[in-house]
Amino acid sequence: MGCYPSKRTKETPGYEEPTVLAAETPFTVSEVEALYELFKKLSRSVIDDGLIHKEELQLALSRNKNRRNLFADRIFDLFDVKRNGVIEFGEFVRSLGVFHPNAPVEDKIHFTFRLYDLRQTGFIEREELKEMVVALLHESDLLLSDDVVETIVDKTFCDADLKGDGKIDPEEWMEFVSKNPSLIKNMTLPYLMDITLAFPSFVLSTEVEDSE
C-alpha cells in the first residue's frame, strides 16, 4: 500500500515521477523524493501553488524577496527550462542534478557559462562581466572605484579571452576554468550527497525501492 505518489501527480502541476527523474539525474529515487520535500517547502514560501516563483527562489537565496539579485535571477532563468515563469518539480531536480558531487565537471562548466552569458549571445562579453562585478559589489555593499573595477575586468578578460576577439566563447571558458578550478566550486553542493538525511520525512513513507 503506497502513501501519496498517485495523489500528488494529480494535484501538483509539473510533478514528475521520482523513478523517471532518478533515471535522468545522479539522484536515487529516495533522494528525488527527499528533494520533493525541499521543493514543497520552497514552493509555498510566498505563493502556495506547488511551483517555485522567482520571489521564492530570491527569498531562499538572498533572504529578501524584494531586493533583486542579478545572480539569483540568472539561476531562476536557467532552472526555468520551459521559460514559463515558474520552476516545476522536474526542472528543479534536473537542474540541481548539475550541482551533485557526482555530476560531470563538463556539465558544471557549461552551466556556469550559460549563467554568465547574461544576454544569451553564446559568448561572455566584457560588458556582461563588468555588469556582474558591479552587481556583486552592490550586493556586498563594497565600494571600489570605477578605475579599479575596470582594471579587474580588463585583467580577467585578457586572461580568459585567449583568441583576443573581445568575447569569451565556450572553448575559452572551458580552458579558463581548467586553469582556475575554484570558479566552479559553488557548482558542487555536498548537501546533495546526504539529502535524504536533511529531509527524511518522505523517505519514511516511500513506496519505491532504490535499485542501488
Binding site: L42, A60, F71, Y116, L129, K155, L183
Partner: peptide
C-alpha cells in the same frame, strides 16, 4: 592593490545569489 589582482569571475562566484547551499538551510 590586492583587488586589482583579483579574478573577476572568482569575485562573482561569491555572490549569495549563486550560493545554492542556502536552499538547504532550515
Amino acid at each position: 592593490m590586492a583587488p586589482v589582482t583579483m579574478n573577476a569571475f572568482e569575485l562573482i562566484s561569491t555572490s549569495q545569489g549563486l550560493n545554492l547551499s542556502s536552499l538547504f538551510e532550515k
